[in-house]
């Protein structure tokens, strides 16, 4: 599938920024998102092709503005709803109630 994810050869992306002694996860939520790849996979919610396809369907602006693990989060939110495991209303309600509780 052609799209923004197909970055090979694009120009004017700027310098490559490196980080010394980079941690495996920069924020706690990144580790949770990473782990959910395995648990969702094990539950049969998606396979690798569905995972990739959900990222490739992201809008170009959203794709560029979000990080690697945000792409993964986008996959879960998309595929779990598409497959009827969760509803968008359930997700929105849960976010709202967590916000009212003041976070985690």
């Amino acid at each position: 599938m052609n799209g923004i994810h197909d970055m090979g050869g694009m120009q004017c992306m700027g310098p490559i920024v490196r980080e010394e002694n980079e941690p495996q996860f920069h924020e706690e939520w990144e580790g949770r998102v990473f782990g959910m790849f395995f648990t969702n996979f094990a539950e049969g919610h998606f396979n690798v092709d569905m995972f990739r396809h959900a990222i490739e369907r992201m809008g170009p602006a959203e794709y560029l503005e979000t990080s690697y693990y945000e792409h993964w989060l986008h996959v879960y939110e998309t595929v779990l709803v598409e497959r009827g495991i969760l509803t968008q209303a359930e997700i929105d309600d849960k976010i709202e109630s967590l916000r009212e509780e003041g976070g985690s």
Binding site: M36, E43, L73, E77, K94, L98, G103
Partner: peptide, 20 residues
């Protein structure tokens, strides 16, 4: 962050459903 909240929501929902 908003992102952390979305992750927490997803993990909580899947846990409540016994899927995680």
């Amino acid at each position: 962050s908003e992102t952390a909240m979305r992750v927490k929501a997803l993990e909580t929902l899947l846990t409540e459903k016994g899927l995680l």
